[in-house]
């Protein structure tokens, strides 16, 4: 997977965010095995302790489970993945609204812009 680790905050937290998006986007499917710590560290170009911390955090949040020798796997629980999907969407919408308010747009204007854009995207995509 493509790692995006140039944002603010701890690298391990950015890795957690990357994997979460990968899970929701289906890049890591339910029950799929995640790369081992060292492998993930090399891929992302980070220290193995950082990769370890990211995986531990994903485990703590119940998104990933460890099987003693086989490695770590993405949860198979559809409810958990759906909640994660909502959580990421909420974050994106919140950031979007903050940006738009900072630019001085009202709710009506924002809604208008969204439907204008959507028309464009639908035409462009199909």
């Amino acid at each position: 997977m493509e790692w995006k680790l140039d944002g603010e905050g701890p690298i391990w937290a950015q890795m957690v965010e990357n994997v979460k998006r990968g899970i929701v986007a289906g890049e890591f499917g339910p029950g799929e095995r995640l790369p081992a710590v060292r492998e993930m560290a090399l891929e992302a170009g980070v220290n193995p302790n950082t990769a370890q911390r990211a995986l531990t955090e994903l485990e703590r949040q119940g998104l990933v489970y460890a099987q003693r020798t086989a490695g770590r796997f993405v949860t198979e629980d559809a409810g958990t993945i759906e909640r994660l999907r909502r959580e990421l969407a909420d974050g994106t919408v919140r950031a979007f609204l903050e940006d738009m308010r900072a630019l001085g747009f009202t709710r009506e204007e924002i809604e208008q812009l969204i439907s204008d854009q959507e028309g464009g995207i639908d035409n462009g995509d199909t």
């Binding site: 905050g9 701890p10 391990w12 911390r53």
Partner: peptide, 8 residues
């Protein structure tokens, strides 16, 4: 990581 977290 602590430094990044504290200072943003």
């Amino acid at each position: 990581d602590d430094l990044r977290e504290q200072r943003g």
